[in-house]
């Protein structure tokens, strides 16, 4: 009904009403980016782990591998025999020089020729997904054949990546918590300012019988509307940024991250963000009003 539509406390006309939505927008934007990086990071780890858990790489020094024509089996042949005999191994593949060159080119540059470099022979081993291979025993057996061979189960590397990812996630969570703290302080401050700017209106409302919760509801409605507005703006900006970043990164070579595209989980987190901000802001406004008024005589 029109007669009661308007708020009794004219908060919308305050200067704060103009900049608060933008403050909320910026906070939601930063929180969204932090959360997306954390989510992308954990997806990346899952991706790498999945790709690497059933595999290992064996490096054999080049001097232990005899050139094409040979009479007796060299270290490479014996390691391959060993692998074929190992239970659970699905495939043991010697990487072609072209493939190794392709992998190394980003680091060495196109000019370098592999022929001049002592590049080790790489065997890429894939296990059956169900197999639980005894990496240690395999490593010992390989060492017996070729003491300088390196059996890499990628665990050390994965461990480091996981640490990095955890750090990024920790920072992201810290950022979100700090932003939430910021939001609470800004809303509390703006609410207190509104209470003092409109002190005469609030006094009148009290004198004609308004309860504190009625006054609080006026502030809640105001804060809810600007928080939702700001939250949606921040969300749109964040989605736009992620989309742009995804487009830019798509073209880059040696892409180690999974595609920077928003997944269903990301979407639900993102959509929840403005709602959460609006909720936090509204509760803060209510609490601030009730506490401030209760202290009044």
């Amino acid at each position: 009904m029109m007669l009661f539509a308007r708020r009794d406390v004219p908060l919308d006309s305050d200067a704060s009403g103009r900049f608060l939505p933008w403050l909320v927008a910026i906070m939601v934007y930063l929180a969204a980016l932090a959360l997306i990086s954390a989510l992308t990071m954990s997806r990346a780890i899952g991706h790498w782990q999945e790709g690497l858990s059933g595999t290992l790489t064996i490096q054999i020094p080049p001097d232990q591998v005899v050139a094409k024509a040979k009479s007796a089996p060299d270290a490479l042949d014996r390691v391959l025999d060993l692998l074929i005999a190992t239970p659970g191994v699905r495939e043991a593949k010697v990487m072609e020089p072209e493939e190794i060159e392709r992998l190394l080119r980003p680091w060495l540059g196109a000019a370098a020729s592999l022929a001049e470099l002592p590049v080790p022979v790489l065997i890429s081993v894939t296990f059956n997904p169900a197999a639980e291979p005894d990496f240690a025993a395999l490593a010992r057996a390989v060492a017996k054949i070729s003491p300088d061979a390196v059996v890499d189960t990628h665990q050390a590397w994965l461990g480091k990546v996981r640490d990095l990812a955890r750090t990024v996630q920790g920072i992201a969570i810290l950022v979100v918590v700090l932003i939430a703290g910021c939001a609470v302080m800004i809303v509390a401050f703006a609410t207190r300012m509104g209470l003092s700017v409109h002190g005469h209106v609030i006094e009148l409302l009290h004198l004609i019988g308004a309860r504190d919760s009625y006054v609080a509801s006026q502030f809640q409605a105001h804060v809810l509307s600007f928080a939702l507005r700001g939250g949606m703006i921040g969300l749109l900006l964040a989605v736009g940024t992620v989309f742009l970043a995804g487009e830019v990164l798509k073209g880059s070579e040696a892409m180690v991250l999974p595609e920077l595209a928003l997944q269903p989980l990301d979407w639900s987190v993102l959509l929840l963000l403005p709602v959460a901000v609006a909720l936090v802001a509204t509760l803060t406004a209510r609490f601030t009003v009730l506490r401030t008024l209760a202290r009044m005589p």
Partner: peptide, 9 residues
């Protein structure tokens, strides 16, 4: 406070 509000009405 709530009683005061009710009486003011």
């Amino acid at each position: 406070r709530p009683e005061t509000a009710m009486m003011r009405r």
